[in-house]
């Protein structure tokens, strides 16, 4: 126990009575210094962002382009190749296609169980037409787990028949998801969007490290 005690004489301290007084003076001045630092923070704005209700811009809007949020499918683009269903390592995508009497293949089911999805991104990589992609949404907490199985097909839709490059433009990220998963986080209010746009779109990549 004795050896654990720090020596009375530290570098720069003469020891003896002068050292003793020196220790006291140093302690007092360092306490004063510390108090001054903590006092100075009382005059600054806290760093905290009060997620989720008092954010200036909804957090999804600030996420980078490559962010892998909840999956969404643009059925106008989907050719029904089933690549995504095959690639998915945990089989959380299930697709059914039926051929009707008019010989048109129709998607009757395109379900993604996002409670099981691990956001690996293999399905969206394998999708040749960018029909299946990650949105920027992530706030999908629900009371019942069955609500987390997303049914993208409301009524049977014919599969898309197009060549790559001719596809219609994608809809904004998260828009489709909002239709199939009600109650997603706050929608950006127009003024906030404008203010944001004035400063440069965060998702455009400016300011990325």
């Amino acid at each position: 126990m004795v050896s654990a005690l720090p020596p009375a004489v530290t570098p720069g301290n003469p020891g003896g009575v002068r050292g003793w007084v020196g220790h006291i003076v140093r302690t007092a001045s360092s306490i004063l210094e510390g108090l001054a630092v903590t006092l100075s923070w009382a005059f600054r704005r806290p760093y905290t962002i009060q997620y989720p209700d008092k954010v200036e811009v909804p957090v999804p809007e600030t996420l980078p382009e490559a962010y892998r949020g909840i999956l969404e499918v643009d059925l106008r683009l989907c050719t029904g190749c089933l690549q995504c269903e095959k690639t998915c390592p945990i089989q959380c995508i299930s697709i059914s296609i039926e051929k009707g009497e008019d010989a048109v293949r129709r998607l009757t089911r395109f379900d993604i169980d996002i409670s099981r999805c691990m956001y690996c991104g293999l399905c969206s990589e394998s999708c040749a037409f960018d029909a299946l992609a990650h949105s920027n949404q992530f706030e999908a907490a629900r009371q019942d787990i069955s609500e987390l199985t997303l049914h993208f097909v409301r009524e049977p839709v014919p599969v898309a028949r197009h060549k790559a490059g001719e596809a219609p433009p994608r809809r904004p990220r998260g828009e489709i998801l909002r239709e199939v998963l009600p109650g997603l986080g706050p929608v950006m209010s127009p003024p906030a969007r404008d203010r944001r746009a004035g400063q440069g779109d965060p998702s455009s990549g400016e300011g990325k490290p």
Binding site: I49, S203, G207
Partner: peptide
């Protein structure tokens, strides 16, 4: 202590980091 930190923060003002913090 307040002034010592204010300059670096002021230099960051106006720039928009892509990820929070905004504040």
């Amino acid at each position: 202590a307040y002034l010592a930190d204010r300059e670096p923060y002021r230099r960051l003002e106006g720039k928009d980091p892509w990820y929070p913090p905004y504040r």
